[in-house]
């Protein structure tokens, strides 16, 4: 046996971090919409799935270069997110939370159905962005795609932070989430901000879908489990707190890959969910958030 237990664990950590980045991004997507509207968008996972699917189609079927296809995919999914808000959320106006949840569930069913209609039930793969040659470190090996994933995730977080801190629209969105009436009084249209939050959240979902597809296949049914795990990360990090979401995403990814490798792979998918249940029981405000932080969230 050439491989020591430590390098094996290191390998699991690497895998965990890359999948965890995706959970973190899905969690951020949840947070953006939650902060703007107070609802959990059950169609969040479908945005990720669509990102992967559209990217595959653009590159494989139309032969678009990766860069072009990337931005085009993000734009298309963002558009779908915006349309989703206009067609499903906007008409509900003063509906209660319950109706809003049900409508987003309906939306997720529709998006899934459309995806099955367009792409069928097969799984699709995407070539890696750069070489597929693993880079050895300390006995473990890292796929270059993992670095792409980490890079894309960090870039997304940085861009989002800048957006919410320094742009007018970003600040307006934050104002809306902390006090809607006051925001309205200074001339911010909360409804536009809600739409924007769906667009933004869909775009982030798309990015996550694109960067994960090279190492994990995509099919029409993939969104739901990703959404559930992403939600676990969002809750673990404190709902609404996106710095927490990133860290929680890593944690869950690592736990999952360690658990699958060292304990039992049959229960791999259950790990994130058990984490979710445990947190809801013992500390529903998350590890990083406390109740006050929920009110003073940044994005």
């Amino acid at each position: 046996m050439g491989i020591s237990i430590w390098s094996q664990i290191l390998q699991y950590l690497v895998t965990g971090v890359s999948i965890g980045s995706i959970y973190g991004m899905v969690a951020i997507g949840f947070n953006i919409i939650y902060n703007a509207t107070g609802i959990i968008n059950f169609a969040q996972g479908e945005f990720v799935m669509l990102g992967g699917m559209i990217m595959v189609t653009l590159t494989a079927a139309f032969g678009a270069p990766v860069i072009v296809a990337f931005f085009l995919t993000v734009a298309i999914v963002a558009l779908i997110g915006g349309l989703f808000e206009r067609l499903a959320i906007y008409p509900l106006k003063n509906a209660g939370v319950l109706s809003l949840i049900i409508v987003t569930i309906g939306g997720s069913i529709v998006l899934k159905g459309v995806a099955m209609f367009v792409w069928g039930k097969e799984s699709y793969a995407l070539p890696h962005f750069s070489s597929e040659e693993p880079i050895p470190i300390l006995g473990a090996s890292i796929l270059p795609q993992t670095l792409w994933i980490l890079g894309a995730m960090l870039l997304t977080v940085v861009l989002l932070t800048l957006f919410f801190r320094f742009t007018l629209i970003g600040r307006a969105m934050r104002a809306c989430s902390s006090n809607r009436t006051a925001a309205y009084l200074v001339g911010i249209d909360a409804r536009q901000m809600v739409c924007l939050s769906f667009i933004l959240s869909a775009a982030i979902g798309a990015v996550a879908g694109i960067i994960i597809t090279p190492i994990a296949l995509v099919d029409y049914n993939r969104g739901f489990l990703l959404a559930l795990k992403g939600f676990s990360a969002a809750v673990l990090g404190g709902l609404g707190n996106s710095a927490g979401a990133v860290i929680a995403g890593f944690l869950i990814g690592i736990l999952e890959s360690l658990g699958a490798g060292l304990v039992s792979s049959g229960y791999k998918d259950a790990i994130a969910l058990i984490v979710l249940l445990v947190i809801l029981f013992v500390r529903p405000s998350g590890i990083l958030g406390d109740k006050e932080a929920l009110k003073h969230r940044s994005f």
Partner: peptide, 19 residues
């Protein structure tokens, strides 16, 4: 298999027009 699409659409239409 596309019945699922039909359910989603029916659900959304009902929630929007007859909550």
């Amino acid at each position: 298999d596309f019945d699922i699409l039909a359910y989603g659409l029916i659900l959304m239409i009902i929630m929007i027009f007859a909550p």
